[in-house]
Design a protein around this nucleic acid. Structure first.
Lengths: 346, 346
DNA sequence: TCTGGCACTCGCGTATTTAGAGTGCTAACA
DNA sequence: TGTTAGCACTCTAAATACGCGAGTGCCAGA
């Protein structure tokens, strides 16, 4: 592969217009059409030379001899990293965003749904929003309800009024009064703290000499331990998957099936999204970059969102590699910020 | 169209084997292969005559001149109604069913998920289970949590430990103590009754002379009214949608897209499933019979399931018109009964 | 009423052809 | 040395033709 110094400004501009062109009309771009570009006053022959260089560098690629060129993953990557001219949101979109996300919401979890749907509707691709990570979210209320035998239904409410519930198996039978007492204790001590913090505190408290604490507290802590034990994998809200069925690059039934299977198994997708949790700002996986086979022909544009300046989740857009990055990127960015704002204001 | 008297036993048997054959290998059935049937000792020519009659009656149909015959919707219908020889469940399937559904469950709503997944895994098609209708389900516990302003988060638990939550807007600000009191009152009066019954009782109580009841009770009833006001549409759990992408009759992308859109909009599907709520036993929609365009090329085999002898929901299997009815029907039937049993035992 | 025979139709898969698009290369030119 | 025009070449996609096989309908005879 040739070194970067081979990429003079002209080649870069040519690559840029080629990618833009391809994104726009989805067909391999030939030297003829590029020569028509007003800013690129070159003959088709010269353009062919440049394109040959770009191909040597692995930035573009020809599906077959007589078919023009198509960007490779590296080509898209270079384009996204340094050539892209971001288009600001259209005001209508911004309005739609704000009015949808910032209005008073009418049910827990509903903002996330709205955000996801919004992402898909505006981009005409698939939208995804992970639920806020339990770890970082703070406890607002906890409650135990007896079920049959030693099974107890625990309900707890976190930040942003997310309601969680889980069944735990206690080591002995508790009376309703005991459960109530345990809940009271936990509510008085742990409310307002993050679940991760709570887990730490519980461990501490269990190591303390049991003489120093009364039995009721011990019971409560024990139940809390069961409740907040290792978290099951987090979850996400997906919308507009069906939009993906319209794209020719995903019209292969086998591929599409694998993609949708990935969506319903969630595991791999979660893993992918988790990687975006760390990164600041908009994160992009193009095609095989994700390393996840089911996403080989897709790109994923994500951004993390925060509650009270703490990153708690990720949202993004899933679509074909050939997508309008210059519009999607700012859109995802803004949506993440608005979602954070909407969740904060609760 | 010819009358039914034209259908002698021989024609019926021929139709039966034709349908079975087509279901089995998915290709139009010609007179040749039918003449090979051991119970049908006829020459191809005779069979052609019979088939011509069946075609006149609209029971079978030829895709084109040289392609054998395929059952029409009416053909399938006749087959399912009177010709089908039901195959009992294989013991391995029954085991899988029982062990999956009757084991202790580890989370509310989980049994429904399992049932749905089971339906899809065993049949290799899509499985669907509606959530138990709120109307008929009984209240076990209710609780109010204050949010900002006049918004109150209400959490209530019903039969089978289903946890519901909703945000209501009260007409004035309530203190946590007041909310607690209201919940206590409601728990003491309404627990164990169906939501529909509760709604009735509330209406009664509100009409009573307000002198006779104290203010706290009034507040409680008022909040209960908001909580149990008209229900939003019910919901369902769908599994194995991706299995449907494997069937050639659904390989048309446009159709597939419409089907999946129907799945995610839920509305139309719910409406269809609701029709099965009334009927006793297994209910079947074949192809266009459902009257729902998105399902034109699918069949739906359903059965309602009950908690404490009261029908509360529907489950079923969605697949291509060409499905192994003789196995799916008993399977859906048994699954519905087992699900009911599993929910009862709580 | 059933059967064998036969001509007929139609779809599918396999060449074969043609038109068009785009390329790489070379030679000329500034 | 970089750019351009020209040209032969390659490859795809669409159109056309063709033979094969499957299956039919109909008729005449048992």
């Amino acid at each position: 592969m040739a070194s970067n110094q081979d990429l003079n400004e002209r080649s870069l501009y040519l690559l840029k217009t080629l990618v833009e062109r391809y994104i726009h009309d989805g067909q391999p771009v030939g030297s003829r059409v590029l020569s028509k570009d007003p800013n690129l006053k070159l003959s088709p022959a010269t353009i062919r030379n440049v394109m040959a260089d770009l191909e040597d560098m692995g930035l573009i690629h020809s599906p077959h001899t007589s078919a023009g060129r198509v960007p490779t993953v590296s080509g898209y990557r270079l384009f996204v990293n340094s050539l892209l001219t971001v288009k600001p949101l259209e005001s209508s979109e911004l309005n739609q965003l704000q009015s949808s996300l910032l209005t008073e919401y009418d049910g827990p979890g509903d903002v996330l749904n709205k955000a996801s749907r919004l992402l898909s509707e505006v981009t005409k691709m698939a939208g995804v929003v992970t639920l806020p990570r339990r770890e970082t979210v703070t406890l607002r209320h906890i409650e135990f309800l007896p079920m049959s035998n030693t099974r107890v239904l625990v309900i707890f409410v976190t930040d942003g009024q997310e309601v969680h519930n889980k069944i735990i198996h206690t080591d002995r039978l508790y009376s309703p009064a005991e459960l109530q007492q345990a809940a009271n204790y936990l509510n008085s001590v742990y409310v307002g703290r993050s679940l991760a913090k709570i887990r730490d505190l519980i461990l501490n408290e269990m190591e303390q000499d049991s003489n120093q604490v009364n039995q009721g507290m011990m019971d409560a802590v024990c139940m809390a331990r069961l409740t907040f034990a290792q978290q099951p994998q987090d979850d996400y809200v997906l919308s507009g998957e069906t939009n993906l069925m319209g794209f020719s690059e995903l019209s292969d039934m086998e591929r599409l099936k694998q993609l949708f299977e990935a969506f319903s198994q969630k595991r791999g997708v979660i893993h992918l999204l988790d990687q975006c949790l760390q990164a600041e700002g908009v994160q992009i996986f193009i095609g095989e970059e994700s390393g996840y086979r089911a996403f080989d022909h897709c790109s994923l544009v994500t951004s993390s969102y925060s509650i009270n300046d703490e990153v708690v989740g990720v949202l993004g857009v899933i679509g074909p590699t050939r997508m309008a990055y210059e519009k999607v990127i700012p859109f995802v960015d803004v949506t993440a910020k608005l979602l954070g704002a909407a969740l904060n204001s609760k």
